[in-house]
Lab assay of single mutants.
Amino acid sequence: HITLTNLITEETTHVVMKTDAEFVCERTLKYFLGIAGGKWVVSYFWVTQSIKERKMLNEHDFEVRGDVVNGRNHQGPKRARESQDRKIFRGLEICCYGPFTNMPTDQLEWMVQLCGASVVKELSSFTLGTGVHPIVVVQPDAWTEDNGFHAIGQMCEAPVVTREWVLDSVALYQCQELDTYLIPQIPHSHY
């Protein structure tokens, strides 16, 4: 019994991606959610070859190996599938703050939850000092008015990073160091 759908849910078992011959794909929301959820992320060749051979072929032979941004053979989907007991964002409290493009905020929040993070909706909701690490995620190029994202640091004691930190961490299924993704914050004294 196979159901085809464009939506990823808890029940989804396989995410089928358009890939090149070496099982490398573009980074899409579907790709990120498939990895975050520990699903099989496979090339569409799995479907076409299975139909051709009239049997369901082994997914291992068709698993996506990499993507056009993070590298052609990083094995993120395999790492995620085999590490669902070791979520990459466990112990983190993440607030997805401000506008985002090409990806609804609720989907970004679901993605970080699938990776083990707790989501907070407001900067004031962080449970500071409880052994949980707060992180604010923003997408600077989605902000149309002044660079308000440079002043988020005044509203909460949390590192502010770009959305790329989430996307790179999920694609590779390895929590990336914050340093290269940090957004400089204007210190309090400048006000």
Rank of each mutant, 00 (worst) to 15 (best):
I2N: 08
C95A: 14
K39F: 06
N6L: 14
H190A: 04
T13G: 01
T12S: 07
P187L: 10
V47A: 12
Q107R: 14
E164Y: 07
N102Y: 05
Q139S: 13
F62Q: 02
I2F: 09
H14L: 05
G37N: 04
E122R: 15
Q185M: 09
F62V: 03
H74V: 05
M17L: 03
Q139E: 15
P187Q: 11
I8F: 08
I152V: 10
L114S: 04
I152R: 10
F23I: 08
F100V: 13
V69T: 13
K121E: 09
W110M: 13
L182E: 10
A171E: 05
V42I: 13
V161K: 02
R90A: 15
E157Q: 11
T9K: 04
D61Q: 11
L4A: 07
L92A: 05
D85G: 14
P187N: 13
V68Q: 06
D179G: 11
G37T: 03
E59R: 00
V69H: 08
F62M: 04
K39T: 07
A21R: 07
L182H: 11
E59L: 05
Y97H: 15
G34D: 02
I2Q: 12
A80Y: 13
N147M: 12
D85Y: 09
V41H: 00
I88S: 00
Q174L: 04
R65V: 08
L167G: 03
P184R: 14
M111Q: 05
C175R: 15
E122Q: 12
G76S: 15
K121L: 14
V15L: 13
A21H: 06
P134R: 13
I88T: 04
T130S: 15
L182P: 02
K18A: 13
E59Y: 14
S83G: 15
R79T: 11
L167A: 04
G91R: 08
G131N: 06
F32Y: 02
D141G: 03
N102Q: 15
L167K: 00
H1R: 09
H133P: 08
S43Y: 05
Q185A: 06
W40S: 05
P77S: 06
M17E: 00
K30A: 00
N70S: 14
I8S: 05
H188P: 09
F32H: 03
T101A: 14
F23Q: 05
K78N: 04
P187A: 14
L57G: 09
A158S: 08
Y191M: 13
D20E: 03
E93W: 11
R72G: 13
G98A: 14
A142T: 15
W165G: 03
V47H: 00
W46T: 00
H190T: 15
G116R: 00
H74S: 04
E164Q: 07
C96Y: 05
S169T: 04
N6C: 05
H150L: 11
N6E: 14
Q139L: 05
E93G: 15
S43I: 00
L182Q: 14
K121N: 13
V160R: 12
F23K: 07
T144M: 13
V166A: 07
Q75A: 05
T105P: 12
N70A: 08
C96S: 07
G116F: 14
I94L: 07
H190F: 04
Q75V: 10
V120I: 07
F100L: 10
F62R: 01
T12G: 01
N102S: 07
E10L: 11
I88L: 10
V160W: 01
W110K: 14
V120L: 11
D146G: 10
Q174P: 03
T3L: 12
G98L: 02
T9E: 13
H190K: 11
M17T: 12
F149V: 10
K121H: 15
Y97C: 02
Q75L: 13
Q154P: 08
Y44P: 01
N102H: 13
G38P: 01
Q84P: 13
K87Y: 08
K121Q: 15
G66F: 00
E26S: 12
R86Q: 10
R79P: 01
Y97S: 08
K55N: 09
I135T: 05
L167M: 13
I94T: 05
F149S: 14
D106C: 13
E11T: 14
Y191T: 12
D61G: 09
D20L: 02
T101S: 13
F100W: 06
G153W: 10
T12R: 00
G153P: 11
G71L: 02
L7W: 13
E157M: 06
G34P: 00
N70G: 13
T180K: 05
T13S: 07
K121D: 06
E22K: 12
V69Q: 06
F23V: 04
T12A: 02
N6K: 11
Q75P: 02
E93P: 14
H1Y: 08
D168E: 02
N70L: 09
P140A: 03
N70V: 10
M17F: 00
E122L: 11
L92Y: 10
V119L: 09
R163C: 07
V69F: 00
W40I: 09
T180M: 06
M111A: 05
D141E: 15
N70I: 03
T3Q: 10
W110G: 04
M103T: 10
P184A: 15
Q185L: 09
T13L: 01
